[in-house]
Simulated scan of single mutants.
Amino acid sequence: MDRRTLLRATVAGAGGLALPFTAWPAAYAGPAQTATGPYGPLLPADANGIQLPAGFTSTVIARSRQTVPGTSYVWHDAPDGGAVIPNGSGWVYVSNAEVSSPAGGGASRIAFDSTGKPIGASRILSGTNNNCAGGSTPWNTWLSCEEVTLGRVFETYPLGGTAVVRPAMGRFKHEAAAADPVRKVIYLTEDETDGRFYRFVPSAWGNLSAGTLQAFVAGTATSGTFRWVTVPDPDGSPTATRHQVSGAKVFNGGEGCHYAGDKVWFTTKGDNRVWQVNLTAGTYELAYDDNLVSAGSAPLTGVDNVTGSTSGDLYVAEDGGSMDICVITPAGSISVFLRLTGHGSSEITGPAFTPAGNRLYFSSQRGTSGSSSGGITYCVTGPFRT
Rank of each mutant, 00 (worst) to 15 (best):
V74A: 08
T141Q: 10
D290Y: 15
K269A: 09
G374F: 04
G357E: 05
A287C: 09
N129T: 09
G55P: 02
T280K: 15
T354M: 09
R339C: 06
T22L: 14
T156N: 02
P202V: 04
P41G: 05
A240C: 08
T149P: 03
G374R: 02
G253T: 01
A176Q: 05
E190V: 02
W205K: 04
A78C: 13
G370I: 09
A18D: 11
Y284S: 00
Y378P: 01
V68D: 02
S297R: 14
G106N: 06
V231Y: 03
K117Y: 12
A54H: 05
T283S: 13
V306S: 09
F251I: 13
T225G: 10
S246T: 13
E175D: 15
V380S: 03
P41V: 03
F112A: 08
S72W: 12
A107E: 00
G296S: 03
S108P: 02
S333N: 11
L143C: 07
R183V: 07
S114H: 13
K117N: 12
S372A: 12
V327H: 05
A352M: 04
A14D: 15
R4F: 01
P79H: 13
A54Y: 05
A221D: 01
A163Y: 10
R65P: 00
S108D: 13
D113N: 14
T280R: 15
T329G: 03
A14R: 12
T241E: 08
L286Y: 00
I348P: 08
A12L: 14
R242T: 10
V165R: 10
A62L: 04
S372E: 11
N48V: 11
E155S: 02
Y39M: 05
R65N: 15
N278Q: 06
L125E: 04
P234Y: 09
D113P: 00
A356E: 14
F362S: 05
Y259S: 04
L279K: 05
A83I: 07
F251D: 04
D235A: 15
K269S: 10
I110P: 08
S372L: 10
T230N: 11
T141P: 06
A240D: 15
G40W: 05
S373Y: 09
P38G: 08
D194K: 15
D324T: 13
A32F: 01
F226W: 02
T212V: 14
A287R: 00
V94Y: 05
G302R: 03
L19P: 09
F200K: 07
R123W: 02
T230H: 10
R273P: 00
D324W: 10
A218S: 01
P383K: 01
T10H: 15
G236Y: 11
T341Q: 11
V380F: 06
W142L: 09
V11K: 13
T162C: 06
D46L: 07
G106A: 11
G302F: 10
N87Q: 13
G195Q: 01
A133T: 04
D262F: 06
A210M: 08
A281H: 12
A111T: 12
T301S: 14
N272G: 06
W142T: 04
F172A: 01
S311H: 03
S322M: 10
S223V: 00
L6D: 12
A176S: 12
N272C: 03
G81E: 11
S322D: 14
N207L: 05
T222W: 00
D77E: 12
T115C: 04
S108R: 02
R166H: 06
F172T: 02
G254E: 02
G106R: 06
A78T: 09
G120R: 09
T310I: 11
T386N: 15
